[in-house]
């Protein structure tokens, strides 16, 4: 489970529920490219025989996605926003064994 301890508000709806947008700051994004490491790959290889959840990969992707979100949040803060709305996640595999995690949204200033 991804920790959501970010200093600004995030939402994947068009506004922050219960608040109104007073200012737009444009699109902000964060991304990270990660490769699996050998130990995890080995364990996942073993787990691939019996199937089911590959915990190592789940954790890896969660950590990486958290980092991508932190980068987006940092960017949003640097432009003076206090919330990011319409957040979307995207994943693409760059090479075999490496994938890019990308997150983007619109930085806004909200008020209650």
């Amino acid at each position: 489970m991804m920790k959501m301890d970010f200093p600004i508000e995030l939402s994947n709806t068009e506004n922050v529920p219960g608040k109104t947008i007073t200012e737009f700051h444009g699109i902000v994004s964060g991304s990270t490219v990660r490769a699996k490491h050998v130990g995890r790959d080995f364990m996942a290889g073993l787990k691939n025989i019996v199937g089911g959840e590959l915990k190592g990969y789940t954790e890896l992707l969660e950590e990486s996605r958290h980092e991508a979100v932190s980068r987006m949040v940092a960017q949003a803060q640097s432009v003076g926003a206090n919330a990011v709305v319409n957040v979307r996640f995207a994943t693409s595999s760059v090479a075999s064994g490496a994938s890019e995690l990308y997150v983007y949204g619109t930085a806004v200033t909200v008020q209650r």
Partner: peptide, 15 residues
């Protein structure tokens, strides 16, 4: 109040 929540899982087939 609101908050972004996520859930993810990686699953694979057996041999």
């Amino acid at each position: 109040q609101s908050m972004l929540v996520t859930g993810s899982v990686v699953v694979s087939l057996d041999y």
